[in-house]
Design a protein around this nucleic acid. Structure first.
Lengths: 344, 344
DNA sequence: ATTAGCACTCGTTCTTATAGAGTGCTAACA
DNA sequence: TGTTAGCACTCTATAAGAACGAGTGCTAAT
């Protein structure tokens, strides 16, 4: 059941060629390739075997072969040689970090944009998970007598804000006192732990100092309870539409629909491990992704995994190139983020 | 050159029918309509005249007629009776404002979502122009020894933030002093005027109080110089793809491309007057919009125009319904926003 | 084990035929 | 003079058939 060297060679050439041309490959055109020194008849026999084993398939009875998902999987697992990136590519990636950008989100967004331009596929980036950030500062800015804005600044410079109403009975100076106490006690605490920490350790303290602390505290903890899912950024959303496999209106509709529905994308991306992940076609468990592959890479700050950067392309995508790009970009990104936020 | 009553009637029935069916309408099927009491031959004569005048056209020599842009224009200008919205629609719109949402942007986003769901077209909302807001509070939160975040809160509760670096030579207490002075002097000033006001009136004052005020001031004014274009929100981006006129991959591509490129959309929307605007097909001056109409309505806070809410659909869209919806939603939106932010 | 040869299959493209929807024009009618 | 019935004509959509070519699977020879 193992593939012979010759079968592997044929499979490799088929996948490589199909990735380039998007056309089924026949035995005759295969036999003309440089790498291949045996006749088309031999190739036909080998192809029949490869097809029996499920690595390639026909589009109709007398057509040439195209790789199956299993074929791509084998290709990705065993035949992939990391592509040497050329100077233009390297330069493009370096350019992401050339400008001095300080906001984490902006860097991440720019990465997505450049990546999509370089590959002509669609790039997706899962922004840093805010909930793991630590509180730097909480501020309350009153807007009018019963409305105020709570602003949270995290250690990575992320700013979240939410408007809230409070009972007019609350004394403004109480609010100020409360914010001061909270800031003293909560600086450096991860956002996810804020509320539990408030109730466990600080509620008692507050009760001593503040008269109507009950309603106020409830309002504020409600407010702090932010959804704070990772944000999803896209680059080149429509790029994938120019791939020849998407010349069918129905396919475009279902894919675009999925892309627009951020939740689906989020589910698709979040379950990936650290490092490079490759999901081919139905491996994505999503009917709209049947003809698509998703390659993801994680980026991190120091030891901590921050987010995911991904390329969405047709199953017939340039795996080698995309993987090299993602690898480079994710390590660079991690390096820059670590320098920028970690050691200061 | 004026249309006779009968020609108007025929034009109206053609447009109404085509909006429903998306099929060319022939003289015979027209003659069967209730409203129409003359023979198909008569109708053919009238249609020939309407075509000569440019109100309707044929898709090929022996096809039925469809409205031309001029036909739609006449329909919109003279034949449109405002549609009575039914209870379901009214309820859906009211539901936008049912929940207590406080953030302006959220309300606006929810409007876009509901609107697209009700119409099955794509909705676009131009968010409130931040640059016209007035400064409520400026805050600087230091992140580490040479990085800080400037946070601006406006009177409508909008929060803008930007990270910046400053020379390590700057004294932290100077920063604080400066922020205090700026807050005292700049509260209530429209964001667009911040910088000029700083240089005209406050620079002198600052020089007296702060040692290295030069670099610091430059950094801060740079930071305040935010782009602050109106934000663009979408609802149902892919809805329009399910319209039968978009069964062509090339059309989908060009339209999706335009939608993704926020700048184009922004240009399309911003030039509209207050009130309801209707742009049909090529009136939009955009090749991707050839088969689309754009209906916009402005919303405001008190007397001040804040933003635009729009529906993008095929030229064959339900003008009457969409206009009624937009009118209702924009007045409701204006009312709520005015109540929420103006008189407090 | 490999390969040349050949019959066969199927998609693509082009042509031809047919049905149907709709038009424009003419002539008759009220 | 405005309206209508009738008819020839046009064009699309659809189906069916023919020719072509790319490719296969199988057999027999090397």
């Amino acid at each position: 059941m193992l593939l012979t060297d010759r079968q592997v060679l044929i499979l490799q050439v088929i996948v490589d060629d199909f990735i380039r041309s998007a056309q089924p490959i026949g035995s005759r055109s295969l036999s003309k390739k440089e790498e291949i020194n045996f006749s088309s008849a031999t190739i036909r026999n080998e192809m029949a075997d490869l097809e029996d084993m499920g690595f390639i398939e026909k589009t109709h009875t007398s057509s040439g072969r195209i790789p199956s998902e299993k074929g791509y999987r084998f290709y990705v697992d065993h035949l992939l040689l990391p592509e040497k990136l050329n100077h233009t590519d390297m330069a493009a990636i370096k350019s992401i970090f050339a400008e001095r950008i300080y906001e984490l989100e902006k860097i991440v967004q720019k990465s997505a944009k450049i990546l999509s331009e370089m590959t002509n596929y669609t790039s997706i980036v899962l922004g840093p998970a805010v909930k793991d950030n630590r509180l730097r500062k909480l501020q309350i800015v009153p807007l009018n007598k019963d409305t105020a804005i709570a602003i949270i600044v995290t250690d990575t410079g992320h700013v979240e804000n939410r408007m809230f109403h409070f009972p007019t009975s609350v004394d403004p100076s109480d609010v100020e006192k409360m914010v001061n106490i909270l800031n003293e006690r909560l600086a450096g605490v991860p956002l996810t732990n804020l509320n539990s920490k408030i109730y466990k350790e600080i509620a008692v303290l507050l009760r001593h100092h503040i008269s109507s602390y009950d309603t106020l505290l409830n309002t504020i903890t409600d407010t702090l309870n932010m959804p704070a899912n990772e944000k999803v950024f896209f680059g080149g959303k429509t790029n994938i539409l120019s791939q020849p496999e998407f010349n069918d209106v129905e396919k475009i509709r279902s894919l675009m629909n999925m892309i627009e529905q951020e939740d689906g994308i989020y589910q698709l991306l979040r379950k990936n491990q650290a490092g490079i992940n490759i999901k081919i076609g139905t491996e994505n468990d999503n009917s709209a992704m049947e003809n698509c592959s998703l390659i993801t890479a994680s980026y991190s700050m120091g030891q901590e995994k921050l987010g995911t950067i991904a390329i969405l392309g047709p199953t017939r995508m340039e795996y080698s190139r995309v993987i090299s790009l993602l690898q480079l970009i994710s390590t660079d990104l991690s390096k820059v983020l670590t320098e920028l936020y970690q050691n200061k």
